[in-house]
Nucleic acid binder design. Structure first.
Lengths: 190, 190
DNA sequence: GCTTGTTTCCTAATGCCTTTAGGTTGTAGC
DNA sequence: GCTACAACCTAAAGGCATTAGGAAACAAGC
């Protein structure tokens, strides 16, 4: 029997590709086994079970996005950095919708802490150094930026903007303008 | 055999309750049949298939949220209205996490247009009447508000804020402050 | 070249899920 | 009481997840 030379990494990558083509919900051991040309049971030598497979794709997506974001942020600050980060996420979601969906999957605490997740929060925090925000407001601003990016991208990729004008690109630019303005004029507490 | 007197509505409601207790992903014909005390095959008299069951729960959640939001907005304007709308969504997600997740499910165009979805967009637009935004900016602002609300609520309910301080309630309040400030000082185009 | 151990992949089997087909029995209206 | 329509049932086919145990490729040592 011809050996495929599978590893956990190759299985994960095949799962990620399948997610992008057919949706993260379609990523099952059966479907991945068909894609790599192997019997279903053979997958279980590389991956514990269906949940493990999905978690590995989540971790892959988080890491890929963090790498791209770090590269995009290099040498940028202020609004430039804000736009670069948001656009990195948005482009990733457009190029890899299944992986982006995988990245939203909930992880248990230990796994989340060991993942690239915290790197994302750190990068948003780094952007805030270009704005004059009091220390106590930083976490709030991080959460606002993360929420807005994530909310916009999921709604856009879910087709939420498909049936109204203007196009999503224009709104995206205006929303980045608005976030930049907001960070430069962050309201005082109370 | 004791008849349960099921209808599509009762099946949908049972599915919604199950979603809130066990997660929307666990809502299957089998599980719902067990919950209502009926053989699986009997469900198919009321619901076309698994996807139809899930879609009905989505529509229920969208309608419930729209009703609550409309009630909360009555007699309010400006920041008051903004806070009331956002908090209605957030409270709904906390009380009914499975239904909130169901509400994010993608619908085909015709179903989406016939759902309560457009009512949500209209309500956000109504709030903007309390702010002086140029006509061409309204859609962008609607999308910003919707994205931020949805992004924050999904991250919070997904445990994204569980392992950092301060608590999510404080961030939520600051984010509403920030959105209000932003809408009052919306940046000019270009 | 042959043996030995490890790894990769296989077949087989169990149990759960979805969906369809066709039969039975409450229940409401006449 | 009879008829007709629901509501519910059993039975069966086909798919997916998972485990157990076996065969066959590959690497290393003799």
């Amino acid at each position: 029997m011809a050996r495929m030379g599978l590893t956990a990494e190759r299985v994960t990558l095949a799962g990620a590709e399948l997610a992008d083509e057919a949706g993260f919900a379609q990523v099952t051991p059966s479907a991945v086994a068909r894609r790599v040309g192997v019997q279903v049971a053979s997958l279980y030598a590389h991956v514990r079970n269906a949940e493990d497979l999905r978690t590995r794709i989540t971790l892959l997506a988080l890491a890929e996005m963090a790498d791209r974001a770090a590269a995009a942020l290099a040498g940028r600050a202020g609004k430039d950095a804000l736009v670069a980060l948001g656009t990195t996420y948005r482009d990733y979601a457009r190029q890899h919708p299944g992986r982006y969906a995988a990245a939203q999957q909930r992880l248990d605490h230990a796994t989340a802490m060991a993942s690239a997740g915290p790197r994302h929060a750190e990068m948003i925090r780094a952007i805030l150094r270009g704005y004059a925000l009091p220390e106590t407001e930083q976490t709030h601003a991080v959460r606002l930026i993360g929420s807005t990016f994530h909310g916009y991208i999921t709604q856009e990729s879910g087709g939420g903007f498909d049936h109204s004008t203007p196009g999503p690109q224009q709104s995206w630019e205006r929303i980045l303008d608005a976030l930049d303005t907001l960070l430069r004029h962050w309201p005082h507490e109370g």
